[in-house]
Design a protein around this nucleic acid. Structure first.
Lengths: 225, 225
DNA sequence: CCTACCGATCGGTAGG
DNA sequence: CCTACCGATCGGTAGG
């Protein structure tokens, strides 16, 4: 376990010690930080925060045990970075989407907007590189109250964009639940899919979206008068 | 931290050592085991399995650090006991319910049965003594594959009783999602409430049930032809 | 069920 | 970013 076969033993390489000078072929700093966050996201999701050691994370990016602390002042700071990175990506993708559907040729049908939001959310949650949001959802306990506040703010602003859509649909009679509770129940339903969804079998994200819409939205089959 | 003020220091009591003889006033064995399971459920839920030490659990029932291992062969066995106890209770309560609504004066309306199932589920999940199911839902990773199989069997048989109801509602056109996916999405929505529900404010379990039904079931307002 | 204890692991740090 | 290390904690056990 101490020296996996697929990683060269750093002690045997006799590479120069100390802070590496930034010569041409050397990887740059920002990348290493992001590599750590990504590796941490994968491990935190698979094994949980407490069961993941900082040594695991270091090994995953080819560092020695103490080195992650050169980039992050604590294991908890690494977790917070995973959560914030995940929420920022999700938020960016959702904002981009809403600019499209809110554009000059905006659909008047709020159900179409909800559909796009759900589809985008499944993408963020189940698509490639999708360990960040599950970690945020299931590792609340392991960050400090201050960090919790910051992450919650991001999460709230992400979900807040759904509320006017839900409110309109409720007013139109196709959403049979008050918007505030609808938000909680719907996100519960969607987010839980991270536990059971298997991309290699079963439904596609489009089919998932169709079924979720069918479950939540009471389609009005009647045409006009 | 080593000796909380509200617990007498056992080293100072000079009580008799060794295996206690079962004199009249002594608590009996089975109770101690159940006390451990209950304390473990509460701690596992609040702090997570990994962040809870067996010493925490021992202290919560007034034992010394090594004593839980007299009742359980490992910390993992204690976790499995929590999950199984939770599922057994939930299953019993649900079976009792279905015998009532399936009795001689059974309602023909499947929506009424779903309503009863949801209401009972909220009770199991959010009522008093409700740490067991959340622990089962969020600590899968920490039990062995063998234990996972056992718990999953209990969980599947619990949820399986919902499927015929969902199938009938789907056939009747008031559930707009195929039953298999409906089960996953609905349980996701319901179970997530364990994360946000606050009994001291907001809705009652009845109101919660009403809103969930409104969200999932497309009420047919039309009367017959 | 307590006492006394062990080996392992872990987060984190000093110094370069 | 590595080396070498520390103090703390933890699950679990022997023996009574």
């Amino acid at each position: 376990m101490a020296a996996p076969a697929n990683r060269p033993d750093p002690a045997a390489v006799a590479r120069p010690r100390g802070r590496p000078r930034k010569t041409a072929s050397q990887r740059d700093d920002g990348n290493r930080r992001l590599e750590l966050v990504r590796a941490a996201a994968r491990l935190f999701r698979r094994k949980g925060f407490d069961a993941t050691s900082t040594r695991d994370i270091a090994a995953a990016v080819g560092m020695r045990s103490g080195s992650p602390f050169y980039h992050f002042k604590s294991k908890g700071a690494l977790l917070a970075a995973v959560m914030e990175e995940g929420m920022r990506t999700a938020m960016a993708s959702q904002t981009r989407l809403l600019e499209q559907v809110g554009g000059p040729h905006a659909p008047t049908d709020q159900a179409l907007i909800l559909r796009a939001l759900i589809r985008n959310h499944f993408d963020v949650l189940l698509g490639p590189d999708s360990d960040f949001i599950p970690v945020m959802l299931y590792e609340w306990r392991s960050i400090t109250p201050r960090q919790r506040t910051a992450v919650r703010r991001l999460k709230d602003s992400y979900e807040a964009l759904w509320v006017p859509v839900l409110t309109a649909l409720h007013r139109d009679g196709v959403l049979g639940c008050e918007p505030k509770l609808a938000r909680l129940l719907i996100f519960g339903a969607l987010n839980w899919s991270a536990q059971w969804f298997d991309p290699k079998q079963g439904a596609s994200l489009d089919q998932l979206t169709d079924n979720a819409m069918g479950l939540f939205i009471h389609q009005n089959i009647d045409q006009g008068p």
